[in-house]
Design a protein around this nucleic acid. Structure first.
Ligand SMILES: [Zn+2]
Ligand SMILES: [Zn+2]
Ligand SMILES: [Zn+2]
Ligand SMILES: [Zn+2]
Lengths: 146, 146
DNA sequence: GTGATATTGATAATCATTCTCATTTTGGAG
DNA sequence: CTCCAAAATGAGAATGATTATCAATATCAC
């Protein structure tokens, strides 16, 4: 039962003369089953449940491949391990992070997005993308005091 | 000739019962002499010219201290080594980075800054700060083609 | 099926940063 | 100024995420 993510990955691979392998299919399946912001490590754990023999290096390689194929996207991140999130049918957004409890809220702000376009133009840049993370204290943590 | 940066650092240290040391003074001096976005490594090199015996760990510790004291600030960074920039008398701004040549342009956009405040309020967050980096191709790189 | 080629998984290597700890500095009290 | 507890230092080891290496294996166009 090939779903559209697998179709998209296979199309991407074929187009570049790359191979559709057991490991890649397992990583994609694991990735699609996870939600939110996923580290290579949690993806490794999930992928091992599907294909116990899979190697860590392969997971690192494959999640990067998923990003190139437009199925995953790096989530803005300050410290520690890199995180990825679904990019297919999960449109662009930015993040609001609570410094106390780590809660992450996704948001999309039209005003900011269009102001960014203006900045690109102002400096003669051709836009590729952006990363923005707002940090603060969520309502709960603020109420509980610092 | 104590300048205001040294005064500020010493005040910060005294207030917290910490000591004003040769190494800390050397790192601050080196930092003030450098411009733009500084890595711990380049700061280490610069500090060694002032105090040849200084250790790398001390530079890492001290630049972090400078950030706490409000003299340095982390510059938004995707890969590789963390970078710091002057925070004292160098007001807040965000960055525009060319993916081809690495050029970094600093900018400040009032519209974005105030829209961020609105987002914080919308989600009930108490604002602490933000990191934003726009990536694209600078005029030169865009002209030369990809 | 065959073979050229891409991929894999185990392992070692990298590299920025942090930790450890014995030794040295600092700064306030006397 | 001297003494000393506390803080800081520097050398080197440790960490932890990510990459590189490479012999063995899997894939796929023919
Ligand atoms: Zn919170
Ligand atoms: Zn997200
Ligand atoms: Zn450029
Ligand atoms: Zn800057």
């Amino acid at each position: 039962m090939p779903n559209s993510e697998h179709v998209k990955l296979e199309a991407y691979l074929k187009e570049r003369g790359q191979k559709v392998t057991k490991a890649r299919k397992a990583v994609l399946r694991a990735f699609m089953e996870l939600e939110g912001h996923v580290t290579a490590d949690s993806l490794f754990a999930a992928a091992k449940k599907i294909d116990p023999g899979i190697g860590q290096a392969t997971v690192f390689r494959t999640v990067k491949l998923l990003a190139e194929a437009g199925l995953a996207r790096e989530a803005c991140q300050d410290e520690g391990a890199r995180t990825y999130e679904h990019a297919f049918r999960h449109s662009h957004h930015d993040h609001l992070r609570c410094e106390r409890c780590g809660t992450i809220v996704e948001f999309y702000d039209k005003t900011i997005e269009s102001a960014q376009e203006v900045v690109f133009k102002q400096y003669g840049f051709v836009a590729i993308g952006h990363k923005m993370e707002l940090t603060g204290l969520c309502a709960d943590c603020a109420r509980r005091g610092i």
